[in-house]
């Protein structure tokens, strides 16, 4: 990971979280999860701030943050599409859904549309295997997808904008 932003984040937003957890050992992941909830991702200055406040070397903070797929280091779109890559979804054609999303939005795993509206992330199983293939957008699950159905869902979200 390299320096990706010079923006100044509002670090005061994190004060409560740090107060609660900074002296509880083993809480780094929890703090990072809260930070990501607050900022949408983990900006460099926030990571440095967490390191300073928790007295954990910044190299270690980065090591932990980059280990887990949940953490992001770039802002994501308004709608985060999590496309399930579970076995059942694979067997039932999740690759075709990925292709349909690419056709509709022009983005692949890890990318965000230019208008900042959509990001897509392939995730390990969402646990809704009986509805496979499945995707989750901002917490809502959509199951039994077909390429057409997936496109339709995305278009509806676009139209809401």
């Amino acid at each position: 990971m390299s320096c990706c932003c010079e923006n100044k984040s509002d670090l005061t937003l994190l004060a409560d979280v740090l107060n609660e957890y900074k002296s509880v050992k083993g809480s780094l992941i929890t703090i990072l999860q809260h930070a990501q909830e607050i900022y949408g991702y983990l900006p460099e200055d926030v990571l440095r701030h967490i390191a300073e406040q928790t007295d954990i070397p910044v190299a270690k903070v980065l090591g932990v943050a980059t280990f887990y797929t949940q953490f992001r280091f770039k802002p994501v779109g308004k709608y985060l599409i999590m496309l399930c890559q579970g076995t059942a979804c694979h067997v039932n054609g999740s690759e075709r859904i990925a292709a349909a999303i690419k056709e509709e939005l022009g983005i692949e795993d890890g990318q965000t549309t230019d208008d900042g509206l959509f990001s897509i992330k392939h995730v390990a199983c969402l646990g809704c295997c009986s509805l496979s293939p499945v995707m989750m957008i901002n917490g809502d699950t959509y199951g039994n997808l077909t390429p057409d159905k997936a496109k339709q869902i995305l278009r509806e979200l676009k139209n809401e904008e």
């Binding site: 320096c3 460099e44 190299a59 980065l62 090591g63």
Partner: peptide
């Protein structure tokens, strides 16, 4: 760097095959 020296100037970054040893933010 961390166990012996207590410095931790470098760490493991990333996971799996693409893991690298690097100082924070490269």
């Amino acid at each position: 760097c961390s166990e012996v020296m207590g410095i931790t100037a470098i760490g493991l970054v990333g996971r799996g095959f693409t893991t690298v040893v690097s100082p924070a933010f490269a």
